[in-house]
Design a protein around this nucleic acid. Structure first.
Length: 319
DNA sequence: GATATTTGACCAGC
DNA sequence: GCTGGTCAAATATC
């Protein structure tokens, strides 16, 4: 296993990626111990800080990798620009990538100015990577802004649509859809679409203690007791990331190769294809599809993810 | 006044 | 034509 960097990318970038990954590992390891044994009031680093550090590390890594891709698109080094090509997506996705870098090409507000009411005029992100979880809370330590709500056919509860609050600031394309599960109304189906490209993906600490807050988020049908939301992200969740056979095979997607490479760092070798972390106390099922863009949203972790047995990689492989 | 949410309109995809 | 995803004006909240 190896990660190849474009020739044009500097050694510094490479080192930075490695450093960030190593840091991420270390933070996660610390987090593991924190989760096993909560800290006392001795002023040691809090779990929240560690999570923030882990997220920052990976976001930084992604940022570097993404900038590597930009380097290579200008360099056109087809032989060496593996990472870069992973992130340069052909066809429909290519326009999406372009739209990130070039706001004027975005389907959104700017391109619509001057025209009449063009509400609803947009390009669907059909091939954007998506993954779905089931959780008791919609809180994932990201800052989201609700932009819509729809009644869904054959569904008792409406679906709420959220985008990253930094969509316009930083062109972050992450969105999520939240829908209460009909058979289990105290749980939510949360579908994440796209990944955070913004630098600061963590929202300010937010404790939701009033059910009305979620009611306003999720619609008038909401009737979930307060206690479900009185803590931040405390519910256990499983991550099951899949590459559907009919959609994407990690082996034939360049960026998925990178995914595969990265997950090799994190997971022991006995894991089946795709990322599967299934703790026995799991109450959430994640599914992930359409991995056409490098996506590593670490907004939600399973505690098992932090197991040193599972979470380890040899940075020497990168060198 | 700034920011967030609501909600009807619009459009893409099937 | 239907359904779902997104936009943006109107409204609410701070």
């Amino acid at each position: 296993m190896s990660i190849l960097f474009p020739r044009s990318s500097s050694a510094a970038k490479r080192k930075r990626v490695i450093r960030e990954l190593v840091q991420g590992r270390d933070y996660a390891t610390q987090l593991k111990f924190l989760l096993q044994k909560p800290i006392g009031p001795d002023g040691s680093v809090s779990a929240k800080e560690l999570v923030a550090n882990v997220l920052r590390s990976f976001a930084e890594t992604l940022s570097v990798l993404t900038s590597s891709s930009e380097d290579s698109t200008s360099g056109h080094d087809h032989d060496d620009g593996v990472i870069a090509q992973n992130l340069v997506i052909s066809g429909e996705d290519a326009s999406q990538v372009a739209s990130i870098n070039d706001p004027s090409s975005e389907d959104s507000t700017e391109s619509r100015k001057g025209s009449k009411d063009r509400r609803g005029s947009y390009k669907r992100r059909k091939t954007e990577q998506t993954w779905t979880i089931v959780a008791q809370t919609t809180d994932d330590n990201h800052a989201w802004r609700k932009y819509g709500q729809k009644e869904i056919l054959n569904s008792q509860f409406p679906r709420s649509y959220f985008r990253c609050t930094r969509k316009f600031e930083q062109g972050c394309r992450a969105t999520k859809q939240v829908q209460r599960i009909q058979e289990n109304p105290d749980r939510y189906n949360i579908t994440y679409i796209g990944f955070h490209t913004c630098k600061d993906t963590l929202k300010a600490p937010q404790v939701v203690t009033h059910s009305k807050t979620w009611d306003s988020f999720l619609g008038p049908e909401s009737n979930v007791p307060n206690e479900h939301y009185s803590t931040i992200g405390s519910q256990s969740q499983i991550v099951i990331q899949e590459y559907p056979n009919d959609e994407t095979d990690p082996s034939d997607l360049t960026d998925a190769n990178l995914w595969s490479d990265l997950k090799d760092f994190e997971l022991s070798n006995d894991k089946p294809a795709g990322l599967k972390i299934a703790p026995e106390n799991a109450d959430s099922v994640y599914s992930c599809t359409g991995s056409r863009s490098l996506d590593m949203d670490f907004g939600i972790f399973s505690p098992h993810f932090c197991s040193t047995e599972d979470f380890h990689f040899d940075e020497s492989q990168l060198l």
